[in-house]
Design a protein around this nucleic acid. Structure first.
Lengths: 225, 225
DNA sequence: GACTTTATAGCACTCGATGCCAAAATGGAA
DNA sequence: TTCCATTTTGGCATCGAGTGCTATAAAGTC
């Protein structure tokens, strides 16, 4: 609680000595309490006033920490985009394009055991509550842009061209499928789901290979090239 | 203007003689005027009051024709879902799965020359305005379910399994990419865009073949298997 | 003309979100 | 200490989307 001085905004070096009134809370603290309310009473039934009251801040102040109620569920998504871009850009030039994408997506979606529970709550909400499903499209668009930039860098042309866009949005679809399945099923192997799905995508969703997937354990899926 | 009696709701046989007060407008008429305002002043800057005023109805009545401002842009999307399902289900069993998907998507997205202008406005808005991008996720989820049902029918298992979900969401991504590119570029060949993109998806986004796409006319794209 | 049915207009209300401004809290300088 | 610059906060007013409720208008039927 008595941390030296908390940064409310996104990254940014705390080089200068802090002046002015201290922030009365943090994004993380708000998210914790809000997710709690969402889980208990539902996302739609929880008003911003209730969240603000729970945190002990005013309604107006809430909107200074999160620009919308939906953003709370998304947490620090921007940071993950940076990681994804780094992963894609740092791949060797001779590595096949779709391999790079698969590895990058898998790498940016490794989570510690401690994070998995909260992640499952977040992903459950995101893929269930209509308002959040809707909002996800906006956030995922940014994700797509990162992938499209990478693909355009590989095959030439603009990231807005059909090729890069098709690859990026299909990759997104594949990742979403893996996440949604992981969030609602009993599987603990998120990495395996993502990796396997992207191997299928890379090879073009062969009907026979898909058939092999049904009722197979994740381990056997990874064997397919 | 003096049509016999217009149906405001979705399909539904007008078997009975119409009783009660006549609807003062139609969904299509509202959409026409609303899209006009969206194009001129922007989607967000256009209020429901303005649309209602333009149509000559009250704000409250607007919401009886469309359940939200966003829905106006989507028009009659439900009907297209039915067509898609029909296309998928009526395909011969021995036709390769991804061929069926491609043909079905192409078939459900053929439009007459008269419709193309309005469609371009719609798709431009849908893939540009954040509020509509968001809403699209909800509508597209229904689209995905149709495809996932078909894939599950082919390869076995549940539509909620990773395989069907990955195929469905990737197909959606591919279709979205084709539409977005067509909406913002000069190309008139929507069918070619969709068909070409799905051929790429079916084969797994081969890097070399993607490279051939850059700065190529649509006709040459279709030659690739 | 009375009755039923359907569509409409208008009002009140909730809730998310934004702009504006005054007040509180903090550190530094006079 | 006092004044000042800086930053956060809270309250207020406001807008706009969306919903529930009710009275009324328009149409057909008996």
């Amino acid at each position: 609680m008595g941390a030296d001085r908390v940064e409310a905004g996104v990254g940014g070096a705390a080089s200068e000595v802090a002046r002015g009134r201290r922030p009365s809370t943090t994004r993380a603290a708000i998210a914790r309490l809000a997710l709690d309310l969402f889980e208990r009473n539902g996302f739609d039934a929880t008003t911003v006033d209730e969240i603000a009251a729970a945190v002990g801040i005013s309604r107006r102040t809430f909107f200074r920490y999160y620009s919308s109620k939906r953003d709370v569920v998304w947490g620090e998504f921007d940071a993950e985009l940076v990681r994804l871009r780094d992963q894609l850009m740092s791949a060797p030039q001779d590595e096949p394009m779709m391999d790079v994408v698969r590895r990058a997506v898998v790498a940016t979606n490794r989570f510690g055991a401690g994070e998995l529970d909260e992640l499952r709550i977040r992903m459950g909400l995101i893929s269930t509550v209509p308002a959040l499903v809707a909002h996800s499209a906006v956030r995922y668009t940014e994700w797509c842009e990162v992938v499209a930039d990478f693909v355009a860098g590989r095959v030439g042309g603009s990231p807005d061209d059909l090729g890069p866009q098709a690859v990026a949005r299909s990759a997104l679809g594949t990742a979403m499928a893996a996440f949604a399945c992981w969030a609602q099923h009993e599987t603990d192997d998120l990495t395996g789901e993502v990796d396997g799905a992207f191997r299928l995508l890379a090879d073009g969703f062969d009907e026979d290979r898909l058939r092999l997937w049904v009722h197979r354990d994740p381990a056997s899926r990874m064997s397919g090239a």
